[in-house]
Every structure is written in structure tokens, then in C-alpha cells.
Design a protein around this nucleic acid. Structure first.
Lengths: 168, 168
DNA sequence: CGTTTCTGGTTCTAAATTAGAACTAGACGT
DNA sequence: ACGTCTAGTTCTAATTTAGAACCAGAAACG
């Protein structure tokens, strides 16, 4: 009665994504993979994660096609964990999280790492949402359409039935 | 000895972000909030989450400034949970997750909801990363710079010391 | 007004998950 | 050939979770 609820078959793409990478460690492992970490021990020391947990998370990520193992690039008999194409496409998720963290989770004057363009060393541009024809969009310029049960659109947001609206 | 490791003071903005919204339920609660859900019972039935868990997650999100409570919009004496400015800026994180989920987690022909521009009903443009001067960037056109201990750049990715490179 | 139902929780319990330590097999280095 | 390193697995104790039961105050009802 305490097994975590599965999101695997939700209608919402967000829920499905979280089913795959929504636990405490997966995105950190993936972030490290983007930073060039490939070996079990490197993930382990870089994250400070318990070996058993790392082992389980890597197995899940490989199973779900986000990571793959390949022969170690240094020619040893060990194996490297590398991002698959599916995994590499999580880059924007990491960038979006990074941008939000940079914006909201540092005190004034506190320094943090940032993402630069390797061709010229300049910080990358801010991520932003645009319409099909290129206008910048804010959250309330959009709506979810074609939702199934687990993805209710704003228009029909259920509200507990309160008939009168007296405030006392 | 099994308390979850805290990410609060990590150097990496990604880790800090995950400290705030990186658990199993928070992003789903936030997604529902973007879809217009405001009431405790609406979150509960929409997510199928246990009341105790929802109560704890809402408390944390309010504490961390992602949500706030305000008098219910229908005039009753109850309270609504609404996104703060900080919370609304998580929109791109949700959009990035949605895009990845849509791209990789549906079988051919399986339908899913999608995000549309309310002004014309068309799907929004794909999210993409650009350089300061507007060039599209891929993950390997970028690098993390100014990393602290928990954010190792690719260039110094630690690798177990293996001096020879014989494969046997 | 008095009673019933709904809302928004809190508390309790059993099961699952986690962190960390200890152990191990096979690869490496010398 | 021997000792060390890597990449795990296994074990235990503590924490977290899901779900049910309980409860106080607000709203609806007559």
C-alpha cells in the first residue's frame, strides 16, 4: 500500500516524461552525463549517491532508452554509460531547469555556473516559448488541447460546487 | 540513515531547482496549477494523490515560494492555491518536459494532448536553444562554465585512472 | 435555526524506498 | 603472482509513501 503510483500510462506527456525521469536522481545523472561523465564511479563520486541507488537508476535509464552502455572509450574492459539520442533530447529540460534555478534560487551576489556557447564563450540566449509564427508567448497565451482524463484544460477546471458567493 | 540527501546548497542551478521541484509530485501539481486548478480537492481528484501527500507537497511549495494561498475566487471562505511569479516561470520547464514526452513517449498513432496558442488555436513552436546572436545550438555546442564542486565541466570529467589502453 | 453534507485537512498503519556499510568478482597495474 | 581498483550486489535501519480513518469548520438544506 505504499508503492509509488505509476505515471506510465497517463494521457499527459508531462506525466509520462516524469514517469521516466521524474525521480530524485535521474535528472542529476543525466545532467552529469551531459557534462561528460561516463563511468559508474564518476557518477558515484560526482553525485554522492549510494552505489545501490546509482545502480538501480542507471539500470532504469538504460531500460527506458535514455542511456546506453558501450565499451569504455579508454580501451579498458569496463563499460561507459552514454546518452542515447532520446537522452540527448532532454537537454532542453536541463536548460529550462537551469535557467529557473539561476533566476530564482540564488541570493544577490551569489555566484553560480552558467551555460556558454563554445564557439565564442558567451552565455547562451534565454530559452523562450514562441508561437508557430514567431511571437513570444507567455503561459496564459496558451492552452492544453485534446486532453484526456489526466490533463484537464483550464476552461473546465473543476471547482467544488459552491452555489452562492456570499463572503461572511 | 535513509533520509533523502538534500540538494539545497549545491553549486549547480539544476540541482537547486530539483531540490525545490524535483520530487515525484511537485511538477504534476504545478502542471495542474497552470491548467487552472486552484482548490485542494481539485488537485486531489485530478492527480489521484493521497491527501496527506498533497497536503505536504502544497505546504512545501508554498514555503518555497512557488505557490501561494489566497481567498477563494468563488467568494467562499476556503482558500485557493495559485502560482506565484516564481512558480509561473516554471512554465518552460513544463513545456520542455511536454515536448520531450510528446516526441519520445508515444507510439506511432497514439494521440496526446498538445499546447496551443490561444490567439489562433495553432500548436506552439518547438522550444529551442539559441546563442546570444541567434544561432540554434545543440547540446555539444555548449559547456558549463564557472562550475563549483558539484558541477563538473566536460573538459575535466573525472575518469578512473587507467594508464594503458590495451583491450583484451 | 438545527441538521446534514462537503471541504480541507491531520493522524495512523503497513509497505516500499532510501542511504550507507559490508562484501565480492573480475579487471588492472606492476 | 599479487595487491588494488572498479563496478557492482546484498543487507540493515531509517524514512517516505499510499491509503484508510478520523475530525473541525463551512456550506447547503429544510
Amino acid at each position: 500500500m505504499a508503492k509509488r503510483i505509476s505515471l506510465a500510462d497517463a494521457d499527459c506527456p508531462v506525466a509520462r516524461a516524469l514517469h521516466v525521469i521524474g525521480d530524485w536522481w535521474s535528472l542529476l545523472i543525466i545532467r552529469d552525463a551531459f557534462d561528460g561523465v561516463r563511468r559508474f564511479s564518476a557518477f558515484q563520486t560526482g553525485l554522492g549517491i549510494a552505489k545501490g541507488m546509482l545502480s538501480a537508476r542507471l539500470r532504469d535509464l538504460v531500460e527506458r532508452g535514455v542511456l546506453a552502455t558501450e565499451p569504455a572509450s579508454d580501451g579498458s574492459a569496463y563499460r561507459d554509460y552514454v546518452l542515447t539520442e532520446r537522452g540527448r533530447e532532454l537537454f532542453l529540460v536541463i536548460v529550462a531547469l537551469r535557467q529557473w534555478g539561476e533566476d530564482h534560487l540564488y541570493r544577490r551576489g551569489e555566484r553560480h555556473s552558467f551555460l556558454i556557447d563554445v564557439t565564442n564563450g558567451e552565455p547562451v540566449a534565454r530559452l523562450e516559448l514562441r508561437s508557430a509564427d514567431g511571437r513570444a508567448l507567455r503561459w496564459n497565451d496558451t492552452r492544453v488541447q485534446g486532453a484526456g482524463e489526466k490533463c484537464k484544460p483550464r476552461s473546465v477546471a473543476p471547482r467544488p460546487k459552491v452555489t452562492s458567493r456570499r463572503r461572511r
